[in-house]
């Protein structure tokens, strides 16, 4: 039971990441291959606020969302003027840089050793340390992110970002400052990823740079691809599939050392196969 709860909590965290990345890639057409870096910013910001400043988890989370959101808007502002391939490449470089900073700015981040002793959430007398309670908290936050994403995509704003995906220049000609929209969605997606980051940091109690490299960004991309672009529910399906999949590997008996690499290989394979045979993902709403 506790194992299932553990999986479910990871599902929740990665579903938030998938939904937020889908807003950028699936809805707006911004191929952002650095969501792990945004995730990391949230995780580290949350960790630092909660440990070094001893702030309450929820306050730390709000501040971490702010930090991630502002940084996301900034990188959105700098990079989203660029054409497709350049944007993607710049995002990969950015991921590489963020990890580099996390490893090297030891006075702030404690370098490769990471930050430990991150407390579990609590609100006055109420503690969320117990796995069931933490999972429920994760679920609630997922629900909020889901609702926010639905609100955004169903609004006129959502229509505009989809138009930007379809034909940005035509969207401009009709009077829309598309850069501002791209900055806004980059910031909102980043803030959501920040939530996931703080959740992860608190759940494991520990963060270190190695969990946030480009491969992790590719994993989150796979969640979006497998579930289906431009479909919020799809990202839930994708997260479910890709969080459960490695667990099936356990039963296949791969030794622990290579399990992580096998997982990576399977994500890569999933990306290849879906692009070749089912680019619209499992849900299949948006003909990519």
């Amino acid at each position: 039971m506790s194992y299932l709860l553990h999986l479910a909590t990871f599902f929740g965290i990665y579903a938030i990441l998938g939904v937020s990345l889908n807003l950028l890639i699936g809805y707006t057409g911004l191929v952002w291959i650095a969501h792990a870096a945004t995730f990391a910013v949230g995780a580290y910001a949350g960790a630092l606020f909660a440990t070094k400043l001893a702030l309450n988890f929820f306050l730390a989370m709000l501040l971490a969302m702010l930090v991630a959101g502002i940084l996301g808007s900034l990188t959105g502002w700098i990079f989203s003027r660029l054409g497709g391939d350049y944007y993607m490449l710049a995002s990969v470089s950015w991921n590489y840089i963020v990890v580099s900073v996390l490893i090297n700015w030891e006075s702030l981040t404690n370098g490769p050793l990471g930050i430990s002793g991150i407390p579990k959430p609590s609100l006055g007398e109420l503690s969320f340390a117990e796995p069931t309670k933490f999972f429920l908290l994760t679920l609630v936050l997922l629900g909020i992110v889901y609702a926010a994403a639905r609100f955004i995509t169903n609004s006129s704003f959502g229509r505009v970002i989809k138009a930007i995906r379809e034909d940005e220049q035509a969207a401009k000609v009709f009077g829309y400052n598309t850069l501002m929209y791209k900055v806004a969605i980059s910031g909102m997606g980043a803030a959501m990823a920040g939530i996931a980051g703080v959740l992860l940091a608190s759940y494991i109690g520990f963060v270190d740079p190695s969990s946030f490299d480009v491969m992790e960004s590719i994993f989150i991309l796979a969640i979006v691809v497998v579930g289906g672009f431009a479909n919020i529910r799809g990202s839930l399906v994708g997260a479910l599939a890709l969080v459960l999949l490695p667990e099936l590997l356990r039963f296949a008996g791969f030794p622990a050392e290579i399990a992580a690499h096998v997982r990576l290989g399977l994500y890569g394979l999933a990306l290849i196969l879906f692009m070749l045979y089912r680019p619209q993902g499992i849900i299949g709403e948006y003909k990519f």
Binding site: L221, G265, L269, M275, F288
Partner: peptide, 23 residues
């Protein structure tokens, strides 16, 4: 296929090849 499809597929190949080397 559109350009992003190629790029995403190439990211998949990158991950797959790297994993093969690690294994």
């Amino acid at each position: 296929a559109r350009a992003s499809v190629f790029v995403i597929a190439s990211l998949g190949i990158f991950a797959l090849l790297q994993s093969i080397l690690s294994i």
